[in-house]
Amino acid sequence: MRRNVAALHVRKRSLVYLACLLFCLSLFISACTGDSNNTSRSAGGASATATPAPAALNSLNWCGKPSEIFRDQASSHAQAVASKTTNLGPADDKPKTITDWNTVKQNLGFTIYLPKTLPAGTCLLNVSGSLRDPIFGSNFTITYVLPDQNALSFSQAPVRVKNVTFQCNVSQSSTSTGNAKATSTPSTSGGQESIQLCNGIRDQTNIVFSARGSTATLQQFFQNLQPDVDWTPAK
């Protein structure tokens, strides 16, 4: 039990840190593209523009150079997963890189939940995962950059603590002061909702994601996530 509690605390700290990094990234991208966006709006004038249809995840492109890293930690102390390990070497505590996504998927021990579509113009920033990890057992993380330059990040792992109700907390990186305490009620800045870090369970998958929006909107987004969505990007 102590190991599970410690693992949960480590996981929460790492994911909050991830959300902060993504928020900083979104600010940087927005600053770089702000002038070009303003120019485009001015040139467009009052003419109406049709909204493109949402795009399937496997039709999206990488934001830049592909960033895809999967590791088998091969820990002899890793927590057991629901699926039987296949195409993996011995648990000899010697980490290895895995290049085949299907091998990773077969050995995760949980189902990945993702949105079926995202807004047209979204790109895939990075994806990573690990197997036979001494803390998580296995995990999967993926980050997208939306057309408005906000980041959408998921981190998923097998359920270790049951009876977890869905909840969101405002990311500390989006509060007005460095020592402001995060709350579940998002504030707005410049007409935008705050970035929130949300956590919930679907079947046997613990899902943590970082996104901008109200708690009600993000809860509906969470409920609409679909299992086994093909995320592999267009070549």
Rank of each mutant, 00 (worst) to 15 (best):
M1W: 12
A7P: 00
H9R: 14
H9G: 10
H9S: 13
H9N: 13
V10Y: 13
V10S: 15
R11S: 15
R13K: 10
S14P: 02
V16T: 10
A19L: 03
A19C: 12
A19T: 03
C20N: 13
C20I: 08
L21A: 13
S26G: 13
S26N: 09
L27W: 08
L27A: 09
S30R: 07
C32H: 09
S36E: 13
S36N: 11
A43Y: 09
G45I: 04
A48E: 15
T51Q: 14
T51Y: 11
P54I: 10
A55F: 09
S59Y: 07
C63T: 10
C63K: 05
E68C: 08
R71D: 07
R71P: 08
D72H: 04
Q73D: 12
A74R: 14
A74N: 15
S75Q: 07
S75E: 05
A82T: 14
K84G: 13
K84I: 14
N87H: 13
G89H: 03
P90N: 04
A91H: 06
A91K: 06
D92I: 07
K94D: 02
K94C: 00
T97L: 14
I98M: 10
T99M: 12
T99E: 11
N102E: 13
N102F: 01
T103D: 08
T103L: 06
Q106N: 14
N107Y: 04
N107H: 04
N107V: 00
F110H: 00
T111Q: 05
I112K: 03
L114S: 03
L114Q: 01
T117W: 03
L118P: 01
L118F: 00
P119N: 07
G121P: 03
T122L: 06
C123I: 01
C123Q: 04
N126L: 10
S128T: 15
L131C: 08
F136P: 01
S138V: 02
F140H: 09
T143I: 08
Y144E: 00
P147H: 14
D148E: 13
A151M: 07
A151R: 01
S155M: 09
S155T: 15
A157P: 02
P158I: 02
V159W: 01
V159M: 00
R160N: 13
K162C: 02
N163L: 13
T165Q: 12
F166K: 02
Q167A: 12
C168Q: 02
C168G: 01
N169S: 06
V170M: 08
V170F: 05
S173Q: 04
T177P: 02
N179C: 11
A180W: 02
A180T: 10
A180H: 04
A180K: 04
K181N: 10
A182F: 03
A182R: 04
S184A: 10
S194R: 01
I195K: 00
Q196S: 11
C198A: 07
N199R: 09
G200E: 00
R202K: 15
N206S: 08
I207V: 06
G213A: 06
G213M: 01
G213P: 01
T217A: 15
Q219Y: 02
Q219S: 03
Q220Y: 06
F222L: 05
Q223Y: 05
P227Q: 07
D228Q: 06
D230A: 12
T232M: 10
P233Q: 08
P233E: 06
A234N: 12
